[in-house]
Simulated assay, not measured.
Amino acid sequence: MRHHGDVDAAPGLLDFAVNVQGSAPPPWLRDRLVVALDGIGRYPAAAHDEQAREAVAARHDRRPDEVLVLAGSAEGFALLPALRPRLAAVVHPGFTEPEAALRAAGVDVVHVVTDEADGHRLHPDAVPAEADLVVIGNPTNPTGVLHPAVDVRALAAPGRVLLVDEAFADAVPGEAESLAGAADVPGLLVFRSLTKTWALAGLRAGYALGDPELLARLAAPRPQWPVSTLALEAVIACSMPAAVEESRRAAERLATARAEQAERLAGLPGVRVLPGTAPYLLLRLPDGQGERVRAAVRAAGVAVRRGDTFPGLGPDHVRVAVRPANQVDRLVAALADALEAVAA
């Protein structure tokens, strides 16, 4: 359950396994972080954290006390047991780290598995009424499905915490179906990540949005100085209007590139590109051939994300990031050769 794409993306391989856009932050962001390096001789300051919360609050039309800056969304998932849920319902296929953290803390977890034949559509009534924590990604990783906000809202219930993982929401044009600004949904937590759009996977920066009392419960077990000075600076920088506009334009470019990449992959024999809206695509390879095709593609120097570590998927599923056309050329060629070799 704790297998992630970085394990598949070994050095030297063309990386379609990790959903980070680019290999480094844009120059303006890098320059700002370099300047902030002069401050790392001091402990992260409460005033700096307040600046970050104010920047995020302005970005999402929230109050600063409705923001909790995180050392990446993964920290937020690790804190979920502090909410003391009795039964957590996790919508799958989905990112597995929340469930791994909950199970490690002894929390009972039930799967709500969406159906590929139904387009992995969310059915709110499939969630057990007794679940007092519900976890869902939107768009969901790895399916790429973007659930209607009205359906996600329907998961909220009295006495329940609803966690929506929006790690890829800023990569969707217009941030469609986002609940980041929905302060009116009782028990709602929204996690956001800066990792993907801004190529900050090594920095660990993100934030949670929610009711102040709920955020206080979530943060109760945190150590002192949980978020680094550089991560705080990144949160401020990436929440500025110019950065939000840059990410909006990037999301539109990604949508175009995704459609083109999906069309090319769908032309391969036996490959089904499942519908979605995200900076990655979920593929279904010919029945029984997935593991051998994936191994042959890897031998050709291309890394893809295996699908069988996601509940609800199997060895014939792989996830591929959206990449520039010249890199897609290599992916398509490697897959075509692998499919031909395995079929023979």
Rank of each mutant, 00 (worst) to 15 (best):
R222A: 14
V227H: 05
G94L: 10
H92N: 05
V328M: 09
A171D: 08
R249S: 10
F168V: 05
F95S: 12
A201Y: 03
V91H: 01
V227K: 01
V107M: 09
L194T: 05
M240T: 13
E213G: 12
L274H: 14
T140R: 04
N138W: 06
A220S: 03
L339F: 14
F77M: 06
Y43H: 12
G288Q: 13
P27K: 04
N141P: 03
P279W: 12
R305Y: 15
E54C: 05
H60A: 15
W198Y: 11
P223W: 10
V113D: 08
D184Y: 02
G288N: 11
A169W: 01
D8S: 11
V328W: 05
A205Q: 07
A237V: 04
P44F: 06
A262C: 15
L146C: 00
A74L: 05
R264W: 13
A169D: 03
D329I: 02
V18N: 06
E166M: 11
D151C: 08
R63W: 12
V302L: 12
E340G: 14
G144N: 05
L215H: 02
E99Y: 06
V135L: 13
A156F: 02
P148L: 09
R284N: 09
D61Y: 06
R323I: 09
R59K: 09
N141T: 02
T195I: 12
A78P: 00
A250T: 09
A126K: 01
A171N: 00
G288C: 13
G314V: 07
T195C: 12
D108N: 03
A89K: 01
A259P: 03
Q21K: 10
A334G: 07
Y207K: 02
V145W: 06
R62A: 13
